[in-house]
Simulated scan of single mutants.
Amino acid sequence: MNKVLKIVLTWLPSFVIVLIYIANGLDKILNPNQTGKVIANSTIMTVTGIFLLISVLLFLYHKTLVIGTTFLALYMTFIVFVHMYKGKPYEVTVLIVIATIFAAYLRKPVLFHK
């Protein structure tokens, strides 16, 4: 029972993060003509959505966790800067960046130690 609980608690933050990124990626693919964005090109929005979904898959697979985490964290860091530039609240996006790195740490803590 303890082993199952440990696995569930280790993967729970990853699933929450994955839901955020999947919803964001699907929104960019299914609704590429969003207004009020820095880049209003529908092709770029669709490519960004595909990039997010591929990054999520890399994040979920154990061997490519570092690559997926890097892509997701860099994407959301860029979004933080966009929110700061536009004067929008950016605290939630900063928390998503931190949570992404924390979820990767929980799943593979060896990467963060010397």
Rank of each mutant, 00 (worst) to 15 (best):
K28Q: 04
K28F: 04
K28C: 01
L30Y: 02
L30K: 08
L30M: 06
P32K: 03
P32A: 01
N33T: 04
N33L: 11
N33S: 13
Q34I: 05
T35N: 09
G36F: 04
G36Q: 00
G36L: 05
V38Q: 09
V38G: 10
I39L: 08
A40R: 04
A40K: 11
A40Y: 03
N41I: 02
N41A: 10
N41P: 09
N41D: 14
S42E: 01
T43H: 05
T43S: 12
T43M: 11
T43D: 11
I44H: 10
I44C: 07
I44N: 09
I44A: 15
I44P: 03
M45T: 04
T46G: 07
T46W: 05
V47T: 13
T48W: 10
G49L: 07
G49A: 01
G49F: 07
G49C: 06
I50H: 11
I50Q: 09
F51K: 08
F51N: 10
F51D: 07
L52P: 07
L52T: 00
L52F: 06
L52K: 01
L52C: 05
L52I: 04
L53C: 02
I54D: 07
I54V: 15
I54C: 14
I54K: 09
S55K: 00
S55T: 01
V56N: 03
L57M: 13
L57C: 11
L58H: 05
L58K: 05
F59V: 03
F59L: 05
L60V: 14
L60I: 15
L60C: 15
Y61K: 15
Y61T: 14
Y61D: 13
H62F: 13
